[in-house]
Amino acid sequence: MAYTLHDQAVIVRQNFEFLDSWEEKYQYIIDLGKSLSVMDESAKTEKNRVRGCMSQVWMCVERTQDGINLIADSDAVIVRGLIALVRNLVQGQPPDVVAGFDFIDFFQQLGLDRQLSPNRRNGLVAFVRHLQKSIN
């Protein structure tokens, strides 16, 4: 494995620091969202739906020999971008490292605190909780 989860987190933070304005940051998230592979329609089941999100979010997470395999999707592109951010961090990482990682702190460091507010309910908090619960 080339990078640890913490290495990946540092890379994302550095990428974010290069983006001066909110417009650039959001464009970056949107572009990540557009490039995230689409989840198979048949996997968008009620069982895979993450509740507590204003937009629709689905998640399928597996523990494999090569670490975590996360497949997730949303009908809103900004949420897809945030999912892609999380996926870049956790894909192929050991489950115990993913379970112990402080995602809230990570998003705060990116300045995306408002994405975490209960009012926003875009599911980032619900998403991360769901992810960590599913691999425990």
Binding site: W22, E23, Y26, I30, M54, S55, D75, A76, V77, I78, V79, N122
Partner: peptide
């Protein structure tokens, strides 16, 4: 075809 949540977030943020 944009999702209204995306539109509203960008209106607020930008």
């Amino acid at each position: 075809s944009a999702h209204p949540y995306d539109v509203a977030q960008l209106l607020d943020q930008l």
